[in-house]
Design a protein around this nucleic acid. Sequence first.
RNA 1: GGACGCUUAGCGCAGCUGGUAGCGCUUCCGCUUGACGUGCGGGAGGUCAGGGGUUCGAGUCCCUUAGCGUCCACCA
Length: 874
Amino acid sequence: MQKQLDKIYDPAKVEDRLYKFWVDGGYFHAEADPEKEPYTIVIPPPNITGQLHMGHALDETLQDILIRFRRMQGRATLWLPGTDHASIATEAKIVAAMAEEGITKEDLGREKFLERAWEWKRQYGGRIVEQLKKLGSSCDWDRERFTLDEGCNKAVNEVFIRLYEKGLIYRGERIINWCPTCCTSISDAEVEYEESDGNFWHLRYPITDGSGYIELATTRPETLLGDTAVAVHPDDERYKALIGKTVTLPLVNREIPVVADTYVEMDFGTGVVKITPAHDPNDFEVGLRHNLEVINVMTDDAHINEKGGKYAGMDRYEARKAIVADLDEGGFLVKVEPMKHNVGHCYRCNSTVEPRVSKQWFVKMEPLAKPAIDAVKKGDIKFVPERFNKTYFNWMENIRDWCISRQLWWGHRIPAYYCADCDEVMVTLDAPCKCSKCGSTNISRDEDTLDTWFSSALWPFSTLGWPDDTDDLKYFYPTNTLVTGYDIIFFWVARMIFSGLEYTGKAPFDTVLIHGIVRDAQGRKMSKSLGNGIDPLVEIEKYGADALRFTLATGNSPGNDMRYVPERVEASRNFANKLWNASRFILMNLPDDEPAAHLPEKLSMEDKWVLSQYNRLVAEVTDNLDKFEIGMSVQKLYDFIWDVFCDWYIELCKVRLNSEDKTAAATARAILVYVMTGVLKLLHPFMPYITEEIWQTLPHDGESIMVSEWPKFTESLVFDEDEREFGRIMDAIRAVRNRRAEMNVPPSKKAKVYIDTVYGDTFRKGAIFFERLASASETEVQEGVEVENAVSIVTVDAKIYIPLGELVDLAAERARLEKEREAVLKDVAFVENKLNNPSFVEKAPEKVVAAQREQLARHQEKLAMIDERIAALK
RNA sequence: GGACGCUUAGCGCAGCUGGUAGCGCUUCCGCUUGACGUGCGGGAGGUCAGGGGUUCGAGUCCCUUAGCGUCCACCA
């Protein structure tokens, strides 16, 4: 059987086949195993409406790296996947689709609408899941969940009822953010503020007793219709006399009081504020303090309602125009001042949000926030990087009650029932057949559903069976790492933390690994409107999933944004190809009956060198992954594989592989397979496909690399002395190459290399490599040897001569040596300077001082050799 | 108004607990070297944004200034 691989790695031929192999093998599936330590990640469930984008690709890649790493370490590893019902986004899509057919939600009715929504979910909800698979994500698909499935619904109801009974969920009339397009309330977190150009309309309201006017200013003149007071600061001398009097509201002719409230800033505007309790959160508070009437003047779709008199029926902006015109005409408009101010927009549809009073359900946050803050303070939960603690604290410490009811149908329906006769509110799991208070059967269920994030907040435990005390919950919960972007800390992470603590008594995870967003090559956010998004699936098709993953994992540090530069994916693709060809080389040299990776008894200097380097790599990569330093670990793998293994070790091995010495060749093969196998394992979490494909082709034990054992650092495989020894050879080879390149000698022009060194044994062992790697025709190692008419090269360890015949120019040789001497002198001076500084020697750690002394000795040795050589040339 | 981040080679980025600056791409020179030209060898390119401080020693810690960016709050 001749093992043959293509010259170029073609991911398309490999990926789907291997993914199927993994799924069929059940390697992604996790079971509670008391013998093992669990490791759990729950996926941030992507919206069913979504398409895979680079943000997902990054998020999934990081998770899969951690998951595959821990799985190979022997942990019972669960990556729990699923999707989010995304109430607003999904409902909006379905409503839009229906609009094309000319039907509305109301036409269909709730039940029919939901049927349609589920049908839509069945059709499109699976799309994103299939896309996740393309990345190579090793999720346990047997446990796939949906935030609106039965289990999640059970958890949601349980939580709602418990919190209600505890008094932490309440229903009340409060100012909420209303999206007139989505026609629902949204939470504070769902409002995005954007600075925009507006006007500051200065108005004057006549004082009812005829004594004049009071001037004030507003950015939303249409809310005048709902004004129920005018406020001034109690200490404001200008207006003290007016407090307690009334003014007559222009256009409306309502008599409203002038109240004193410290909320008013005397220095801002005229120091007078019109108070519209129904349409501004601050005004609402003022209204409560002064017992003001609350007049809601707007409809659900932001038109003026019947309370607005002649303006009723107008859109809010039409009304604004009309009112301003009427005010002007009536002499109530003093001036219009252009002004920039922040306007809130719905994070889903970007409509301008309308603050308004509405009867909604809220979660009382203060008692929940406190333990959630403590959990992070105590270190039960760690943010990586740590700076996000601050973001989190800042939000949690200033949090307001969470508006959780939504005027939507697609979502978890609120388990509250109302008696039409006595207004009793009943919050229960099962619909009551009669009122618990008056016995009436005239009962109806709350029409509203819950904020999507209410169910997402329970995700780490609802997916494991909570509220039932299941075996899975006991074993896999609390989960370990949560991986997500900083843009979602408030929406999701914070809410999972207080939810987990409140309902399960445990922090839902111990670490939150935060990543940034993936931007385009120019650093712009990828967006639909800009059309600058890069489709991960297209990239996978072009370069392979491994290359994409590798790119996203490289040069990326936690919490920071990154740019997606096409050249980088190419570099990753090239790296995959490099690895592929290295394995191709090894395979070409392997007999059919080659045993799986093992270490032979008798190792050469270069074997020990590479094993040492490899072994250190194992330690470092493992350590980096333990600390979530993913970018660093991947960089080290890249450097080792390309530089140490391919450019050096494979080249070195060619000598033995081609020699007559069968034992030597076998040793080289064994080390090649050993290191390659180990490196494939270390690389597997980052590049799962190619590593599996190669691993399967190489001699191996076990079914799949993904369930093979993660390499362990082995003390006995550190060979300091051999590393040092081989380092001398490498230095010398590099010096020879360097000199030849400098002199423009083509590799085809070979010449004998003479080496004068005190490290005779080392250089005799390494002599052959000068032929392989430094264009030597033959190599002679001899202490004190001197060669006439040769190019000379000095390293710290050796003087090297290459008789290059007509190319040798002794004057140039001398000049070059003089130049080199200058450079070494500088090095000597630099180190000497340090060592001559008494406070350095005194205060610096011994290790550092010793290292500097050694450094100096090396510089001096080199200097001495250069001097000798210069003397000889004279 | 508050908080945070970034500023390192032409470009994109690393740089962990402070000890004479690294990677990829680009660029220049050379190479049909029996794994790979998606490659090999060699080179050029940086007063680590400015200023101050701590320290024997700072890209790395502290203060400060500037530019860019993000988040939170929000004065009607």
